[in-house]
Protein backbone atom coordinates (compact mmCIF):
# COMPACT_ATOMS: atom_id res chain seq x y z
CA UNK A 1 0.00 0.00 0.00
CA UNK A 2 1.39 3.37 -0.93
CA UNK A 3 2.23 5.81 1.83
CA UNK A 4 -0.34 8.61 2.26
CA UNK A 5 0.45 12.01 3.75
CA UNK A 6 -1.76 13.14 6.61
CA UNK A 7 -3.27 16.60 6.21
CA UNK A 8 -2.67 19.59 8.46
CA UNK A 9 -4.77 19.89 11.60
CA UNK A 10 -7.04 22.66 10.33
CA UNK A 11 -7.92 20.64 7.22
CA UNK A 12 -8.57 17.57 9.37
CA UNK A 13 -11.06 19.61 11.36
CA UNK A 14 -12.63 21.04 8.21
CA UNK A 15 -13.15 17.52 6.77
CA UNK A 16 -14.52 16.25 10.05
CA UNK A 17 -17.04 19.09 10.14
CA UNK A 18 -18.07 18.36 6.53
CA UNK A 19 -18.71 14.70 7.41
CA UNK A 20 -20.71 15.67 10.48
CA UNK A 21 -22.70 18.19 8.46
CA UNK A 22 -23.43 15.55 5.83
CA UNK A 23 -24.87 13.10 8.35
CA UNK A 24 -26.97 15.83 9.97
CA UNK A 25 -28.33 16.86 6.57
CA UNK A 26 -29.27 13.28 5.78
CA UNK A 27 -30.78 12.75 9.21
CA UNK A 28 -32.93 15.83 8.60
CA UNK A 29 -34.09 14.35 5.28
CA UNK A 30 -32.50 17.18 3.27
CA UNK A 31 -31.59 14.66 0.51
CA UNK A 32 -31.91 17.05 -2.45
CA UNK A 33 -29.79 19.67 -0.73
CA UNK A 34 -27.21 16.98 0.06
CA UNK A 35 -27.10 15.79 -3.55
CA UNK A 36 -26.93 19.29 -5.02
CA UNK A 37 -24.43 20.86 -2.59
CA UNK A 38 -22.29 18.04 -1.20
CA UNK A 39 -21.99 15.48 -4.02
CA UNK A 40 -19.84 15.73 -7.17
CA UNK A 41 -21.48 14.95 -10.52
CA UNK A 42 -18.97 12.14 -11.23
CA UNK A 43 -19.71 10.45 -7.88
CA UNK A 44 -19.12 6.73 -7.43
CA UNK A 45 -21.12 5.48 -4.46
CA UNK A 46 -20.68 1.79 -3.62
CA UNK A 47 -21.35 -0.57 -0.73
CA UNK A 48 -19.71 -3.99 -0.72
CA UNK A 49 -20.19 -7.08 1.41
CA UNK A 50 -17.50 -9.79 1.19
CA UNK A 51 -18.17 -13.44 0.51
CA UNK A 52 -16.44 -15.79 2.98
CA UNK A 53 -13.43 -17.55 1.44
CA UNK A 54 -10.62 -19.66 2.81
CA UNK A 55 -7.42 -17.57 3.23
CA UNK A 56 -5.27 -19.89 1.11
CA UNK A 57 -7.75 -20.36 -1.71
CA UNK A 58 -6.25 -18.49 -4.67
CA UNK A 59 -7.62 -20.79 -7.38
CA UNK A 60 -11.31 -19.90 -7.31
CA UNK A 61 -12.09 -17.42 -10.09
CA UNK A 62 -15.43 -16.08 -8.82
CA UNK A 63 -15.81 -12.52 -7.57
CA UNK A 64 -15.52 -12.03 -3.83
CA UNK A 65 -17.33 -8.68 -3.73
CA UNK A 66 -21.06 -8.70 -3.15
CA UNK A 67 -22.28 -5.20 -4.04
CA UNK A 68 -25.46 -3.90 -2.48
CA UNK A 69 -25.13 -0.32 -3.74
CA UNK A 70 -23.40 0.69 -6.98
CA UNK A 71 -24.61 4.16 -7.89
CA UNK A 72 -23.63 7.14 -10.00
CA UNK A 73 -25.13 10.63 -9.67
CA UNK A 74 -28.18 9.75 -11.80
CA UNK A 75 -28.90 6.70 -9.61
CA UNK A 76 -28.64 8.75 -6.41
CA UNK A 77 -30.90 11.32 -8.03
CA UNK A 78 -33.55 8.64 -8.62
CA UNK A 79 -33.29 7.50 -5.01
CA UNK A 80 -33.79 11.08 -3.86
CA UNK A 81 -36.72 11.44 -6.29
CA UNK A 82 -38.29 8.35 -4.69
CA UNK A 83 -38.23 10.09 -1.31
CA UNK A 84 -39.47 13.38 -2.81
CA UNK A 85 -42.42 11.75 -4.58
CA UNK A 86 -44.75 12.11 -1.61
CA UNK A 87 -45.77 8.47 -2.19
CA UNK A 88 -43.02 6.59 -0.30
CA UNK A 89 -45.13 4.86 2.34
CA UNK A 90 -42.24 2.75 3.72
CA UNK A 91 -40.79 5.94 5.27
CA UNK A 92 -44.17 7.23 6.39
CA UNK A 93 -44.17 7.53 9.37
CA UNK A 94 -40.58 8.64 9.00
CA UNK A 95 -37.55 6.46 9.75
CA UNK A 96 -34.92 7.81 12.13
CA UNK A 97 -31.32 7.27 11.08
CA UNK A 98 -28.35 8.31 13.20
CA UNK A 99 -24.75 7.95 12.00
CA UNK A 100 -21.76 7.64 14.31
CA UNK A 101 -18.44 8.31 12.60
CA UNK A 102 -15.12 7.54 14.27
CA UNK A 103 -11.48 6.49 13.66
CA UNK A 104 -11.25 9.36 11.22
CA UNK A 105 -8.04 9.60 9.16
CA UNK A 106 -7.56 12.29 6.51
CA UNK A 107 -4.82 12.20 3.87
CA UNK A 108 -3.80 14.21 0.85
CA UNK A 109 -5.25 12.67 -2.29
CA UNK A 110 -3.61 11.93 -5.65
CA UNK A 111 -4.85 15.25 -7.02
CA UNK A 112 -3.93 18.45 -5.15
CA UNK A 113 -7.56 19.38 -4.44
CA UNK A 114 -8.60 15.92 -3.17
CA UNK A 115 -8.56 14.21 0.23
CA UNK A 116 -8.65 10.51 1.06
CA UNK A 117 -10.72 9.87 4.17
CA UNK A 118 -10.93 6.65 6.16
CA UNK A 119 -13.57 6.22 8.85
CA UNK A 120 -15.46 3.62 10.83
CA UNK A 121 -19.21 4.00 11.00
CA UNK A 122 -22.02 2.65 13.06
CA UNK A 123 -25.48 3.58 11.90
CA UNK A 124 -28.61 2.97 13.91
CA UNK A 125 -31.87 2.98 12.01
CA UNK A 126 -35.28 2.98 13.64
CA UNK A 127 -38.54 2.43 11.82
CA UNK A 128 -42.07 1.39 12.67
CA UNK A 129 -42.51 0.63 16.38
CA UNK A 130 -40.18 -2.31 16.91
CA UNK A 131 -37.50 -2.21 14.22
CA UNK A 132 -34.12 -1.00 15.41
CA UNK A 133 -31.28 -2.00 13.11
CA UNK A 134 -27.57 -1.43 13.53
CA UNK A 135 -25.05 -1.46 10.68
CA UNK A 136 -21.28 -1.52 11.16
CA UNK A 137 -19.01 -0.58 8.26
CA UNK A 138 -15.91 1.23 7.14
CA UNK A 139 -15.92 4.05 4.61
CA UNK A 140 -13.17 5.04 2.20
CA UNK A 141 -14.14 8.44 0.83
CA UNK A 142 -12.60 10.83 -1.62
CA UNK A 143 -13.68 14.45 -1.12
CA UNK A 144 -12.78 17.19 -3.58
CA UNK A 145 -12.42 20.94 -3.06
CA UNK A 146 -14.27 22.90 -5.74
CA UNK A 147 -13.47 26.29 -7.26
CA UNK A 148 -15.79 27.79 -4.65
CA UNK A 149 -13.55 26.35 -1.91
CA UNK A 150 -16.23 23.90 -0.67
CA UNK A 151 -15.67 20.18 -0.10
CA UNK A 152 -17.81 17.69 -2.00
CA UNK A 153 -18.02 13.89 -1.98
CA UNK A 154 -16.42 12.42 -5.12
CA UNK A 155 -16.23 8.74 -4.17
CA UNK A 156 -17.50 6.54 -1.35
CA UNK A 157 -16.61 2.88 -0.91
CA UNK A 158 -18.55 1.35 1.96
CA UNK A 159 -17.07 -1.89 3.31
CA UNK A 160 -19.78 -3.71 5.26
CA UNK A 161 -18.64 -6.16 7.96
CA UNK A 162 -21.76 -8.27 8.26
CA UNK A 163 -21.93 -11.00 5.58
CA UNK A 164 -25.70 -11.09 5.49
CA UNK A 165 -28.04 -8.15 5.91
CA UNK A 166 -29.78 -8.71 9.23
CA UNK A 167 -31.29 -5.23 9.20
CA UNK A 168 -33.62 -5.87 6.28
CA UNK A 169 -31.79 -3.88 3.56
CA UNK A 170 -29.14 -1.31 2.69
CA UNK A 171 -31.64 1.15 1.25
CA UNK A 172 -30.54 4.14 3.33
CA UNK A 173 -27.74 6.72 3.14
CA UNK A 174 -24.62 4.94 4.34
Amino acid sequence: MEELNPVAHEIYIEVQQALFKETRMLREERWREWLETMVEKDIVYRAIVSQLRFRKDNRYTGDKDVPSLDENWAGLDRRVAQMESGMQWTTDPAERIRHFITNLEVFEGKNPNEYVIYSNCQTVRNRRVYEEMTYCYGRNDIWRRGADGKLRLARRDVDVDERFVSGKNHNFPM
Binding site: P67, S68, R78, T90, N169, N171
Partner: peptide, 21 residues
Protein backbone atom coordinates in the same frame (compact mmCIF):
# COMPACT_ATOMS: atom_id res chain seq x y z
CA UNK B 1 -28.48 -4.72 -16.11
CA UNK B 2 -26.50 -5.53 -12.95
CA UNK B 3 -26.58 -1.93 -11.71
CA UNK B 4 -30.29 -1.66 -12.43
CA UNK B 5 -30.98 -4.92 -10.56
CA UNK B 6 -29.04 -3.62 -7.54
CA UNK B 7 -31.01 -0.36 -7.64
CA UNK B 8 -34.37 -2.14 -7.78
CA UNK B 9 -34.27 -5.63 -6.23
CA UNK B 10 -30.81 -5.89 -4.65
CA UNK B 11 -30.28 -5.75 -0.88
CA UNK B 12 -30.14 -1.96 -1.22
CA UNK B 13 -32.91 -1.91 -3.82
CA UNK B 14 -35.71 0.65 -3.93
CA UNK B 15 -38.46 -1.87 -4.73
CA UNK B 16 -37.03 -4.68 -2.60
CA UNK B 17 -37.50 -2.55 0.51
CA UNK B 18 -41.10 -1.72 -0.47
CA UNK B 19 -41.95 -5.40 -0.72
CA UNK B 20 -40.23 -6.55 2.46
CA UNK B 21 -42.25 -4.17 4.60
Amino acid sequence: VRRSMLRTFGTGGMLESDDSD
